[in-house]
Amino acid sequence: MTLPSRFRPASDSIIDFPAETSCFQIEGLGLAYGGKPALRGISLRVPRHRVTAFIGPSGCGKSTLLRALNRLHDLNEEVSHEGWVLLEGQDIHAPDVAVDELRRRVGMVFQVPNPFPMSIYENVAFGLRLQGGLTRRRMDDIVEWALHAAALWDEVKDRLRASAWSLSGGQQQRLVIARSLAVRPEVLLLDEPASALDPISTLKIEELIRSLKSQLTLILVTHNMQQAARVSDYTAFLQDGELVEYAPTDTLFTNPSLRRTENYITGRMA
């Protein structure tokens, strides 16, 4: 699919990746809530098997951008969009794309841990049961693998039948990550995954994010700049619904090319 040239990155403050190594290609994405624009002309490419962070002040649209990537906005009838989002070269808004299949490929973890009111095992198996056609043994294997991958297995292996709500907040968040991993997504979207957790749990989640990038692409929204600096490879800075700067994390935090970015990361602007 060829895109009009006007959607190519317009400024040298935005890093470009070749389409072949990109997981997501976002081209000229605009989004409005009931006519009120929330995102304007976002164009960026998310590299495969890397951690990309979206940072910016509250209300800058970073969460909105994240939720546009698995079409979670579809639920809200007031939301309208323009532009393109391509996952592995395929337009996710194309009429032949099944939205449930898209969301299986693009998993998501939310700010507040949201395990379902079921056992730990059933939580992880939830997505697998939706797909169906798995033997009991295979299901057990995948659940165990997912809990290992989310670094939770050792803590819950003796009580898989216990309610997921008996876990601590940090454990619940890792359970939710395990639940997403169980359906083998290509991308995992993380919407401020540690903001409701204590420092130790936060540390564990950050370690987990770093360890997962060998298996899939991660996109992290955070308002904690230290966290973005610690775990991400690339960082995009958004402000007022626009993409301001997108660079390797080291560069963005040590040598931002724009004054707006510098002001934000040095705390001269709320």
């Binding site: 698995n70 979670l72 639920l75 449930d100 299949e101 969301r103 299986r104 998993g107 998501m108 939310f110 700010q111 507040v112 949201n114 395990p115 379902f116 939830f126 997505g127 939706l130 797909q131 939710v176 639940r179 997403s180 359906v183």
Partner: peptide, 14 residues
């Protein structure tokens, strides 16, 4: 909570 619905949707549930 909306997170419960979104959690299920994000796993590919219709």
């Amino acid at each position: 909570p909306a997170e419960q619905r979104e959690g299920a949707l994000a796993l590919g549930a219709t």
